[in-house]
């Protein structure tokens, strides 16, 4: 199973590099503009070199100690928290999104409910004070909050 994962990682990187190189090569403006070097010269050069290097990318020996099922589950916590934050930010606003995402992150990270609530409350409060009051940056209030206030 771990060798399958390693193979997936290896091929995914090569595919990504090939896709990036192909995009730069194919979707760029023309190389010459009125007979002079144009805005497409550098992208096509970079893209072509990236395609070449992607083909020559060496394979890494699989590390049996890394990327176990338990470590993948541990790493899933931050990813889900990020996705939750991104999904909630505009409808619910920054404060609820941050609190709920931090709560999910703490719980998936192995914190007790008490620890999780403490970290979430302190983090949300400190960040909100720092951004809104200290730096005077308006954090999104959320569509639902605005609608509720309007009602």
């Amino acid at each position: 199973m771990s060798s399958f994962r390693t193979s997936v990682f290896r091929h995914a990187l090569r595919a990504l590099l090939l896709a990036a190189g192909a995009a730069a090569l194919l979707d760029s403006p023309p190389v010459l503009s009125s007979g002079l070097p144009g805005p497409g010269l550098w992208p096509r050069l970079s893209g072509a070199l990236l395609l070449l290097c992607a083909v020559l990318l060496p394979s890494k020996e699989p590390d049996e100690r890394s990327c176990t099922s338990s470590s993948l589950r541990r790493a899933l916590g931050p990813v889900l928290s990020c996705l939750l934050w991104i999904v909630l930010l505009q409808p619910a606003g920054w404060l609820p999104a941050t609190f709920l995402s931090a709560l999910l992150a703490c719980r998936t990270g192995g914190c007790s409910m008490k620890e999780s609530l403490l970290v979430c409350l302190l983090l949300s409060a400190a960040l909100w004070l720092g951004m809104e009051k200290l730096l005077r940056y308006s954090l999104p209030q959320g569509t639902l909050f605005v609608l509720a206030c309007g009602v």
């Binding site: 931090a102 192995g110 970290v119």
Partner: peptide, 18 residues
């Protein structure tokens, strides 16, 4: 580390939004 990484994560998200 379980207490630190949620803080790091939310700081990254907020910072990138800003």
């Amino acid at each position: 580390f379980r207490l630190l990484w949620p803080v790091i994560l939310l700081l990254c998200l907020t910072g990138s939004y800003v």
